[in-house]
Amino acid sequence: MTTAVAAGPVEYIKTIGLTTNQSGRGFTNPYDCAFAPDGRILILNRCDTVRASLVRIGMMNWEEDYLGEFSRGYGRADGQWILPVAIAMDDQGVVYVTDEQQHRITALDTDGNFVRQWGEKGSGPGQMNGPAGLAMNAGETLYVVEQGNNRVQRFSTSGESLGMWGESGDGPGQFNMPWGVGLDSAGNVYVADWRNDRIQKFTGDGQFIAAYGASGDGQLSRPSGVCVDSDGYMYVSDWGNERVQILDPDGGFIQSLRGQATLSKWAQDFMSVNPDERNTREMSNLVPELPPHLDTPYLISSQTEPYFWGPVSVRLDSEDRLFVVESNRHRIQVYQRRKG
């Protein structure tokens, strides 16, 4: 058990990103992010069939400078993506992306050059079915969550299968359409067991340790992602509840975040040249009281711009800043736990 560090409150820092319907600066259904050692933040944009040509990884820094983008485009050729889900980076600067539609992992460098890819649909070793969450341990081992096979598979960065665990069900070590995955500093593996409404914790080789959360009020609903900070605190994107829950190292409830986005630097640029929108926005209450039939977290978030909407991934940078990636709002809200 991790030595408990007293829980401080998690505080909002800022929002980054902006929606766009073109390439370049801005996000299009961001699905995950990763952090390069040189300070670049990489944002994976999933897109859909309507906006397929915008599938890409955008790059920016903490100061919100736009630093370009790369991809091999949308499609079935080598290195191309159809429905990418998650991103991880190794210590050589190679970026790995899961594609749930093509059942494979592609590796590119940040100039967009094709490095390698592997995987095909199936349930044997090295095969995949609906690869979703992805996490990198010590820059060399990849953990891939397969929603279709209800398992976690380990790969070397060269694509060699190193083993797997899990099956369909709701018991320990069983999964129901799992999604995200995170690691702690000891190398334990945390899986967002999406349709079982829980987080499961395993050792690095798949021994079940614990499960946190359940269906129901105040619990988890369809968790999509999980990450663990240097003190062992867990951050869960509670996707079905449109919130983030923070648990202590033993799984005890610490705090729940509903979101409090503000204008990013790029959003402020937009407002500065569109005064009619800026002026009417300033008159508005963006956290309004809603009629009773708009009562689900999803519908409330659709009406309440500062709240999380589609929090698909949570990731921590090297300074333990929490990045909450919101697919439906095309932005990332950043938080940090005040220690002590």
């Binding site: 766009t20 319907n21 073109q22 390439s23 370049g24 600066r25 801005g26």
Partner: peptide, 12 residues
Amino acid sequence: GSFDTHGDEVKV
């Protein structure tokens, strides 16, 4: 199209 160049205009 799309000429709806809210972003990356010079290129698009």
